[in-house]
Simulated assay, not measured.
Amino acid sequence: MAPRTRQSQRRRQVLSRERIVEAAIELLDAAGEGALTVRTLTERLSTGSGAIYHHVGTRQELLESAIDTVVSAALDAVPTPARDREGAPEDEIRAVALGLFDAATRHPWLAAQLAAQITRNPWGPVTLQVFERIGRPMRALGVPEHDWFAASSTLVHYILGATTQNTQHADAAPVGDRAEFLDATARAWQDLDPGDYPFVRAVAGQMREHDDRRQFRTGIDTVLKGITATHRPRRRQART
């Protein structure tokens, strides 16, 4: 009786939607988007393809569920600062941006898939979550309502572009050898003709020593400063 009970528990676990999506994320983390197939997933879960289609639908729907699960977890972990504190809207946007950056670092497949999802499915839950969390502080930043979409889109586009580029850089460097890869790149830059590439040669050392996460935050801060500077007169008027 006990073996049958354990078998029934295992079957219920395999056939749950949550377990299927969890297994899909594990596959994506291990080998990338190309590794996620219904056949591979059924082998991993010791089930049939019918169970996959029944619980999550097609492969594309499964991929979208994996993206939604990872992004939702990242955004749910971001604390919302007190709105009456000076600098709170900027802090909230930084926290959301860094939460997405860290999620893309943990899941290297996520950045490109997130960008594609926002473009392909602007009415989907992932797009709505990202835009809501980035766009909600716009009023507190002093941005007039007719500029909310433009300002929030600028931030979202930077986040997507920077995280995707960072993931591609990680793929280009040999595994576990990022420092060596950057050092070789810096040496190549420093060997360039100073007449043709004075700027590139000057920043070669900075490129070698840069930290991806710190650089990402600098970019977010730069965009935020541009947004607040553009709308500063309206913001001061609203406080008087």
Rank of each mutant, 00 (worst) to 15 (best):
I118Y: 09
Q168H: 15
P174S: 04
A111Q: 12
R139N: 06
P108S: 08
S65C: 03
V143L: 13
R83L: 09
Q165F: 15
L98E: 09
V56A: 06
Q9Y: 15
G57T: 02
V96Q: 07
G226H: 00
P81N: 05
Q190W: 05
Q7H: 14
A186T: 11
V21L: 08
A82N: 10
A229H: 12
T185D: 10
I159W: 00
D177V: 06
R217I: 05
G226E: 04
H231E: 01
Q9L: 14
S8T: 08
R201I: 08
S46I: 04
L98N: 06
R39N: 05
E26F: 00
Q168R: 15
M1L: 09
A116K: 13
L100N: 00
I93M: 02
G135V: 05
V126D: 06
A229V: 02
N166I: 03
S65K: 08
H54G: 13
L182W: 03
L114I: 01
M1K: 11
T69K: 02
W109P: 10
I159H: 01
I220F: 11
V56N: 02
R201L: 01
P125H: 09
R236G: 05
S8Q: 12
L155H: 06
V156T: 13
L160V: 08
S152I: 00
I93K: 01
Q237E: 12
L114Q: 07
D91P: 04
D183M: 04
L128T: 15
D221N: 07
A104K: 00
R39E: 07
M1S: 14
Q117G: 13
M138I: 01
R44Y: 01
L182G: 03
F216I: 09
A238I: 13
A116W: 12
A172T: 04
A238Y: 09
A23M: 10
F199N: 00
A23K: 14
L63Q: 11
T119E: 12
P3C: 10
A116D: 14
L100Y: 00
